[in-house]
Amino acid sequence: MALFDLPLDELRTHRSDSTEPEDFDAFWNKTLQQARAYQLDARFEPVDTGLSTVQVYDVTFAGFGGHPVKGWLLLPAGASEPLPLIVEFVGYGGGRGLPHEHLLWASTGRAHFVMDTRGQGSAWGGGGTADPVGAAPAYPGFMTRGIDAPENYYYRRVFTDAVRAVEAARSHPLTDAARTVALGASQGGGIALAVGGLVPDLVAVAPDVPFLCDFPRATTLTDRHPYREIGLFLKTHRGRSAQVRRTLSYFDGVHFAVRGRAPALFSAGLEDQTCPPSTVFAAFNAWPHEDKAIEVYDFNDHEGGGPFHEAEQVRWLRSYA
Results as ranks from 00 to 15, higher is better:
residue 8 L to V: 07
residue 9 D to G: 00
residue 13 T to L: 08
residue 14 H to G: 00
residue 23 D to N: 06
residue 25 D to N: 11
residue 26 A to L: 13
residue 26 A to H: 03
residue 27 F to M: 09
residue 34 Q to G: 06
residue 37 A to N: 10
residue 39 Q to T: 13
residue 46 P to L: 10
residue 49 T to E: 09
residue 50 G to K: 05
residue 55 Q to C: 07
residue 59 V to E: 06
residue 59 V to H: 02
residue 61 F to E: 05
residue 63 G to M: 10
residue 64 F to P: 15
residue 68 P to I: 12
residue 68 P to K: 12
residue 69 V to I: 15
residue 70 K to W: 06
residue 71 G to T: 06
residue 73 L to E: 14
residue 75 L to D: 09
residue 88 E to N: 12
residue 90 V to P: 14
residue 91 G to M: 03
residue 95 G to N: 08
residue 97 G to E: 04
residue 99 P to Q: 10
residue 100 H to K: 05
residue 101 E to I: 00
residue 107 S to R: 06
residue 107 S to A: 11
residue 108 T to F: 02
residue 108 T to K: 09
residue 109 G to S: 02
residue 109 G to Y: 04
residue 110 R to D: 02
residue 111 A to I: 04
residue 114 V to K: 01
residue 116 D to G: 09
residue 116 D to N: 02
residue 118 R to H: 10
residue 119 G to A: 06
residue 121 G to V: 02
residue 122 S to P: 00
residue 122 S to N: 13
residue 123 A to F: 05
residue 126 G to V: 13
residue 126 G to F: 12
residue 130 A to C: 08
residue 137 P to N: 07
residue 138 A to G: 13
residue 140 P to I: 04
residue 142 F to E: 15
residue 143 M to S: 15
residue 144 T to F: 14
residue 147 I to N: 14
residue 149 A to G: 01
residue 154 Y to S: 10
residue 156 R to G: 13
residue 157 R to V: 07
residue 165 A to E: 03
residue 166 V to N: 00
residue 169 A to N: 07
residue 172 H to R: 06
residue 177 A to H: 04
residue 177 A to R: 11
residue 178 A to V: 00
residue 179 R to V: 03
residue 180 T to I: 10
residue 181 V to P: 01
residue 189 G to Y: 09
residue 190 G to V: 03
residue 194 A to K: 05
residue 195 V to F: 01
residue 196 G to M: 09
residue 197 G to W: 04
residue 200 P to K: 11
residue 201 D to E: 14
residue 205 V to M: 06
residue 208 D to M: 11
residue 208 D to N: 09
residue 211 F to E: 07
residue 212 L to R: 10
residue 212 L to H: 06
residue 217 R to W: 13
residue 221 L to A: 11
residue 221 L to N: 08
residue 221 L to P: 00
residue 224 R to F: 10
residue 227 Y to S: 10
residue 227 Y to C: 06
residue 229 E to V: 08
residue 230 I to P: 15
residue 231 G to H: 14
residue 231 G to S: 15
residue 232 L to K: 12
residue 242 A to R: 15
residue 243 Q to E: 15
residue 246 R to I: 12
residue 247 T to V: 10
residue 251 F to C: 11
residue 253 G to I: 12
residue 253 G to K: 07
residue 262 A to K: 08
residue 266 F to A: 05
residue 267 S to A: 13
residue 268 A to C: 04
residue 268 A to W: 02
residue 269 G to D: 03
residue 270 L to H: 05
residue 272 D to F: 03
residue 276 P to G: 03
residue 276 P to D: 13
residue 281 F to K: 05
residue 282 A to D: 14
residue 286 A to T: 02
residue 289 H to C: 02
residue 291 D to N: 06
residue 295 E to G: 12
residue 295 E to M: 13
residue 299 F to I: 13
residue 300 N to K: 09
residue 300 N to P: 12
residue 300 N to W: 00
residue 309 H to K: 02
residue 309 H to I: 01
residue 317 L to R: 11
residue 317 L to F: 15
residue 320 Y to C: 04
residue 320 Y to P: 01
residue 321 A to Y: 08
